[in-house]
């Protein structure tokens, strides 16, 4: 490393404020988050891991459906269904990107650089949400297409499907993964710790739906229907139980909004 003894060339003092408009500032904040997200290798590794897991999972489920079908069991299902079933678990790889978007910044100190560059807490949160939601839409859609291709290849005639079924799976996954990412992002902003955020994510997305019925209380079991996992399940399969797509969308959007709200309060009122 060479050292330089010269200071920057003296020039006229810069203007005290910027004349750039509001829209520009939002665009800048989003470009900042995009640069950070794509500038680190862990993002690529997580997306790659999610893709490989999805590919492996759908091949296995498809092959299993075909083997069972050939032995006389009624296991045939549309290949997109095999894909979304697999992705309901392999999406964790994508959700981890949302976790690290905040927890990594807190653990390595770069959150201070972020807030010095973009002091508006709400702006930081929304910019991260936009970037992660966009990434989730693209990755989620790609995973469904890839998974459907793999499942249908493995299941052969036991995985036949219609274009409408595929279209619904793609759209449902894109939307639900985007909203779930935003929810997780908000939790990460509030909790700051990687371990705590991942634990919370698993409990809310996966564990609670099995735990709630254990208490035998009717209302607790009913509450399980409004967990994000249940709503996402409705969205990706076009099921009518326990409610329709519109309600499912509202439920999932509610979780995303609540996550963002908690995250905003933590960013706004806690010292860095």
């Amino acid at each position: 490393m060479s050292s330089t003894r010269t200071a920057p060339a003296p020039g006229r003092l810069p203007a005290m404020t910027s004349e750039r408009g509001r829209a520009h500032r939002w665009g800048s904040a989003i470009a900042f988050e995009w640069t950070k997200l794509t500038g680190v290798r862990s993002t690529l590794w997580l997306v790659l891991a999610g893709t490989l897991l999805t590919l492996g999972g759908t091949l296995l489920i498809g092959a299993s459906a075909r083997a069972s079908g050939e032995n006389g069991f009624a296991t045939a299902a549309p290949a997109p269904l095999f894909a979304v079933q697999t992705i309901s678990f392999t999406q964790v790889a994508v959700l981890l990107v949302a976790v690290f978007a905040f927890t990594a910044e807190y653990s390595n100190g770069s959150i201070r650089t972020t807030l010095l560059s973009v002091p508006g807490r709400g702006r930081v949160l929304i910019a991260k949400s936009v970037v992660l939601a966009a990434m989730s839409v693209v990755i989620g859609s790609a995973l469904v297409l890839l998974g459907t291709l793999a499942a249908s290849a493995a299941a052969a005639e036991y995985g036949t499907f219609t274009g409408a079924q595929l279209g619904h799976a793609v759209l449902g996954t894109a939307v639900s993964l985007a909203l779930t990412s935003v929810f997780v992002l908000g939790v990460a902003a509030a909790l700051r710790s990687t371990a705590g955020t991942i634990l919370t994510m698993f409990v809310v997305l996966y564990a609670l739906s099995s735990v709630l019925p254990i208490f035998g209380q009717g209302w607790l079991t009913d509450l399980g229907a409004y967990l994000p996992g249940t709503a996402a399940g409705v969205l990706v399969t076009d099921a009518a139980d326990p409610y329709g797509s519109a309600t499912a969308l509202a439920v999932l959007a509610g979780w995303a909004g609540a996550g963002l709200g908690v995250g905003y309060l933590a960013l706004r009122y806690r010292d860095v």
Binding site: S18, A31, K36, G39, V40, N108, G109, S110, T113, S117
Partner: peptide, 21 residues
């Protein structure tokens, strides 16, 4: 530290530059 250990110096500064236009 001011940035992510996995990010290059150029990328780190480029993100900051973009954030303020």
């Amino acid at each position: 530290r001011a940035g992510h250990p996995g990010q290059s110096a150029r990328s780190h500064l480029l993100g900051i530059a973009r954030s303020n236009g």
